[in-house]
Structures are given as C-alpha cells and as structure tokens.
Design a protein around this nucleic acid. Sequence first.
RNA 1: GAAUGUACUAAUAUUG
Length: 382
Amino acid sequence: VVSWTSMLAAFGERGRINDAKAMFDAMPHRNTVTWNALIHGYAIDGQYEQSVMVAWRIPQRDWRTWQAMIQGYGECGDICGAEQSFACAGQDKSLTNAMFHAYAINRHLEKAKSAFDGMVYKDVVAWTAMVTAYANEGLTREMMLVFDDMPEKNIISWNALVAAYTQNGELDMGIQAFSKIPLWSVPSCNVILQAYVERHQLMEAVQMFHEMPERDVVSWTSLLMVYAQYKLLDEAKKTFMLMPWRTVISWTGMVSAYAHHGSLSEARQAFDAMPQKNLVSWNVILEAYAMNVWGCRETLALFLAMNLEGVLPDKTSFLAILAACSHLGVVTEACGYLRTIIEYENLRPERVHYNCIVDLLGRTGQLATAEDVITAMPVPPD
RNA sequence: GAAUGUACUAAUAUUG
C-alpha cells in the first residue's frame, strides 16, 4: 500500500491526476493516506468539486482529509460546506488555519479576522495568510501592521510582503522590502519579475530573469508571458522550448500566446500536444475558437469533448459558449446552454451570460424578446 | 525508521 500510495502521490503532485486516479483504481488495498493523496491530487489540478465529492466517500477520514475538504469548499466558494466540514471535524485546532484561509479567499475579511484573533497559537503560516488577506483587499496599512506584529518571519512571509506591495501598485515599496530580505528564494525574485511583467516592462523583466541566481518553472513562464504581451511570438516560442520543464500552466500560456498573437491552428496544435489539460486550458481553446465566426462551431464541439473528458466547465467556459452562439446567431442553442448552466450545482447564470443572450437577440432582430429577457432575468441589468 | 496536508510567485473570459 505504501509504495502504491507514494506513486499515486507523485502523480498527483505533478498534476497528473488521471494517472493518479488510474493508480488508485488499480490498487489492491487502500488506506486513508491513499484517499488523502487522491483528493489532494484533484485539488492540485484545480478540481475542487471533485476533491470534495470523493472526500465524502472516504471510509475513515483523518484531520488531513478534513483540511483538504475545508480547502476544497473554500476554493469552490462554498463557505457553508467549509464550516460544515470544520464542525464535523470537531473544530480541531489543526484546522483553524484552513478555515481561516477559506474565509480569506472568499473575501470574508471580518470572519477571517475573527478566526485569526481566535487562534490560541498563531503560527507563521497564519500570520502570513493574514498579511495576504489584507493585501488582497487593498488594505496596505493594516497589512503593514500585521507584518510588524509578526513574532517570527520566514522567507515566505517576506515574499508575501513584497507581493502585497507590488500587487497594490507599490513597486517601489516592494523593491524596498525585497532588498531587505536576508536571503532571496526563487519565488522572491519571481514576485519582482512578475511585477515587471504586469507593468509591461519588457526590458526590466528580461533583465531580472537573467540576473536572478536561479530560475524555476514559474520564472520561465513569466518570461514567456512577457514576450507574449509584446507579441514577440518567436521569443515566446523559444522560451517555451528552452524551459527545463513545463507545467500545465506553461503549456496553457503558450496556447494562449498562439491564440492571441499567432494562428488558431498553432494554438490547436499546442493544445493537442499538451500532456495534461485542466479547466483553464480548455477555456483558452474554447475562447480562441469563439473569437471568429468560423471557429464557433468548433467551440461548441470542443465543449462536448471537454465534457467527455470529465472536465467540469465553469462560468468562463459558458461565457465562451454563449459568445460562440451569439456570433453564430443561434438563439435556441444559446437558451439550451443557459439552461445547462442551471443544471450545475455550483453555477448559476450571471449578468455577463444574460448580456450575451440579449446581444444575440438584439442582433437577430428580436428586440421585444430581448427586452423581455432584460426585465425577467434574475440579476439586475447594467 | 517509509507514503498524504495549511501561508508567498506564473496561464483563460466579460464596455462587444
């Protein structure tokens, strides 16, 4: 069991969830560690719904199981589910960080704050998460106070501080904090590199990339993306080929670069060559085909393929689908897809989706129906 | 004595 589980975990960590699942199915015996490795694999791949669903089928759950479930619910935006899991686990102290993080990523800052304050012992993980939580809300002032109050700081806390500044438009403060770091890790440099990428500062980004002591797959992907921004497709391609190894994110970035600045066929070729695909990869290719009228039927076909692969669509997928229908001028199909959204537990049509429908109706000359939709839709129009 | 976990950095869409 141990060796099988090790293999399974190794696949899961590398995002090869299908291989991990195959291992799981082939195993003669499984224990809780095996199950935990599987649900963690789903989480790595971003399949949090699946992770949680499988978790409920585990015969014997331990605190790592509950932690994964709280995280899974948190990532799905299901705070009630997270709280429920937390309660089922008896509100174990080792789970307060997970619960706190679930609040934080769902922007329930008040609840996050009180969970944080309620912790009897706050470790460096909790402190760092609090820094990030404030930063994500743009509360730089509070973020600084928390950072100063931290009893002990490690490299990740420092990186969080630098990222907090750069992501709030304070590059100078970020660089200042960066220079105070005693010993840089690769992610420390990646934060600065990415800050340049987001600011469209090609020269600085490239320089940072070459000057940093070491580079990892994140650094390489950032470099790829800055070339893509500048429509330097050859440079992007070269970067992609020079990368020592690639993740599903690097691949998706390359597909996206082809889709935006190259050709649809190159994008498709790269997509088909991907060793693994996740939800974002599928969304990229759906959108790529939806950009032009002649690709829209392929968007719908790919959506079917995606379902057959067992990848659950999200609201972005459906936006691509409805945009495709809109370009094609097919009202009936669009309404069908709108109904499909409702069939998914975790999704409901949003204003952007209705906007597509209204756009479509308007374009096909059904103005009266369009007005009916606007008055009848469950979300207020803009 | 071996396998699973929480905080920082990289990929997708919505003023048509």
